[in-house]
Structure formats: structure tokens, C-alpha cells
């Protein structure tokens, strides 16, 4: 026995998978239904690199950096295939989808795992409301629940009906008071900006009621939470963004895609300024993606959906570890 093998045996390492054989089968069957759905819809399956020289600038996401070896590789593991897939769209790919692993550092919990499976797809020529209908159809097919009800609620109505506040009008001090009033513990010790307070209220008091026995689409977000969505001018302006919740769990995020290169560049710069000011890692923004936007991205709607969470909902699993062969602690 080699020294390594001896150590392994002695330590009684948990080498066995977390997912049961039945769970592996459920995953395979769900992926097959998804691929059949897109084949029937005429959407092309694509692959793009997991390893990129550029990284996401969004301060809410932490990319894993890969140290270069002696070769040409090195860079960052992607947090979603968004930039590369939009380059395909700009090159005239037509509707495309991808199932891939994505990586987000610092995310671990019952519903989070730093490496997870994402389904992302794009519909050139569609608007985001039409894409919401297709997301509903896809999830019904993936869950094999063709009659699952669908509900749409605007971000504004969600806060107004659930908490009696208007997220566009309420001040930071009022948001803090609201958090205290609804009994969120430790509010006095929290130092958050406006979006931070909205995230707190949403995740602690509103999410759990969404998607109970149905698919709940929350849409039209504050412009400060646009991410890569287009902002529709108006009074007030809204970001054309949506999220899908099922059984209280955030499952998908979609956009009417921002196609304006100058606006995209400004958002990257704002993200990088925020990162510098808050001591976060400074990362190289994706110049290839910006070049593609300058060349012209067709008006598109796009969405990313977490497949491990979808599988949890399909099987009733209460911990993401149950749907993974090997969670990160034993990977």
C-alpha cells in the first residue's frame, strides 16, 4: 500500500457520494427533459469557456481566480456564461442555451454551493415578458407538472402589499425602521445601503411566501438593481428584470438585455469603483464582451436558472448536498 493510500484508509474519509442512485437518475431525467424542450423549440445548445481572462464585475459575485501554471491558462472561473453567450448572439447565433457548471466563491449553505449547474438561454427578438412565459413552460416541463399555476407580481407591488412600503420612495432610515418593525433580529448592528436593506427585507420577509404551489415571477426592479438589464425610462424608471421563485426559493433571474455598449461600460466602471471603495478584489472587465456590444447585440431577452435548486424542488430535498454527488467539502 502506498503512503497516500494508507493515510486515506486510516482517516476513514467519506468517499461515498451524497446523492443517492435515485437522485442521480432524477437529475439525468430532468436534464433530458430540458434538452428535449429546447430541441423542440429550436434553440441551439452551445458551450462556452468556464475559464476566462476576464471576470464579472458585479460586487455581489465573487469569482474564483485560477493561478496560471506554466502554460497559457489562468484567469477566472465564470460565475455565469452570460458574456460569452452574448458574444455568440452578437455574431448571429440565433436562440441559444447552455447547461454548464458555474462558480461563485463565498456561497455555501442549504441552498448554495460554490460550484453549481446553471441553465442559461437567450431569445433574440423577444421581450422579457414573452421569455417569462417560456421560463414557465420550461419549468413545468422540467418538473413534469404541466398544470403548475403561474403568477406575476411587480417588485413594487410585492413590497407594497407585503410590507406597506414603496421601494422607489422609501428612505434608508424608513427601510431600517421597517426591518425593525417586522422583527428582523440584529437590525441595530447592520450597516447597509438602500439596496442592502431591500435585499434584507426581500430575503427575510417576502421570499418565503412566493411560489407556494405555483411559479411566482417578480418583475420590474429598481434601476439600482438592474445588473445587466435594460432600464425602461418612465416615472419611475424600472429595470426590465425578473426573478422566478418556487416554494420560497429564488430559481431564475432574467433580463431584457442591455444592448447599449456605452451604458454597459459605465456600469462596469461603477462596479469597479464600488469594488475599489469597499476593498473587494479588482478584476478585469470583459473587453471582448464590450467589443461585441459595440459591434451590435440584437435586442434579446435572457435568463439563467439554477438546476440544482430545481432538482431540490422536484425531489423535495431540503439540502443542496442531497442532490450533489460530491459537495465541495469532499470534492
Amino acid at each position: 500500500m502506498s503512503p497516500v493510500a494508507r493515510d486515506t484508509a486510516a482517516a476513514g474519509l467519506p468517499w461515498r457520494p451524497c446523492a443517492t442512485r435515485a437522485m442521480l437518475e432524477a437529475r439525468a431525467a430532468m436534464f433530458a427533459r430540458i434538452r428535449a424542450f429546447f430541441a423542440a423549440a429550436g434553440v441551439l445548445e452551445v458551450e462556452t469557456p468556464l475559464l476566462s481572462r476576464a471576470a464579472v464585475t458585479d460586487p455581489a459575485l465573487t469569482s474564483l481566480a485560477v493561478r496560471p501554471g506554466t502554460g497559457v491558462a489562468g484567469g477566472y472561473l465564470h460565475t455565469s456564461p452570460e458574456f460569452a453567450m452574448k458574444r455568440l448572439l452578437a455574431a448571429g447565433s440565433g436562440p441559444i442555451y447552455q447547461i454548464c457548471k458555474v462558480f461563485r466563491d463565498d456561497e455555501r449553505g442549504r441552498w448554495h454551493h460554490p460550484e453549481f449547474s446553471l441553465l442559461e438561454w437567450y431569445r433574440p427578438g423577444w421581450d422579457y415578458q414573452r421569455l417569462i412565459d417560456e421560463v414557465a413552460a420550461l419549468v413545468r416541463a422540467a418538473l413534469d407538472r404541466p398544470t403548475l399555476a403561474v403568477e406575476r407580481v411587480s417588485y413594487r407591488a410585492l413590497f407594497r402589499d407585503g410590507l406597506g412600503i414603496d421601494p422607489w420612495e422609501t428612505s434608508v432610515a424608513q427601510l431600517r425602521d421597517c426591518a425593525r418593525r417586522v422583527g428582523i433580529g440584529g437590525v441595530e448592528g447592520l450597516d447597509l445601503d438602500r439596496d442592502g436593506w431591500l435585499d434584507l427585507l426581500l430575503s427575510h420577509r417576502l421570499e418565503s411566501g412566493l411560489g407556494r404551489g405555483r411559479l411566482s415571477f417578480v418583475h420590474d426592479y429598481p434601476p439600482s438593481q438592474a445588473a445587466l438589464a435594460r432600464v425602461r425610462p418612465g416615472t419611475p424608471p424600472v429595470a426590465e428584470r425578473f426573478e422566478l421563485y418556487v416554494e420560497g426559493v429564488e430559481l431564475a433571474n432574467g433580463f431584457q438585455e442591455l444592448t447599449d455598449a456605452a451604458e454597459q461600460r459605465a456600469r462596469f466602471d461603477a462596479d469597479l469603483d464600488w469594488r475599489r471603495a469597499n476593498g473587494q478584489a479588482e478584476v478585469p472587465a470583459d473587453a471582448h464582451f464590450l467589443a461585441a456590444l459595440e459591434a451590435g447585440l440584437p435586442e434579446s431577452a435572457g435568463v439563467a436558472l439554477g438546476l440544482d435548486r430545481l432538482l431540490m424542488i422536484a425531489t423535495g430535498a431540503s439540502d443542496i448536498d442531497a442532490v450533489l454527488a460530491f459537495p465541495v467539502e469532499r470534492a
Binding site: 463565498d106 455555501r108 449553505g109 442549504r110 431591500l198 435585499d199 434584507l200 427575510h204 438593481q225 433571474n253
Partner: peptide, 14 residues
């Protein structure tokens, strides 16, 4: 200790 994080937002530990 529960990790709570909107995909595009602030991460919390409840």
C-alpha cells in the same frame, strides 16, 4: 447559521 443571498444582492447570515 443559515446563509441567505439573493443571486444579485447582499449576502447575509441569519
Amino acid at each position: 447559521n443559515e446563509f441567505v443571498k439573493p443571486g444579485k444582492g447582499q449576502a447575509f447570515n441569519r
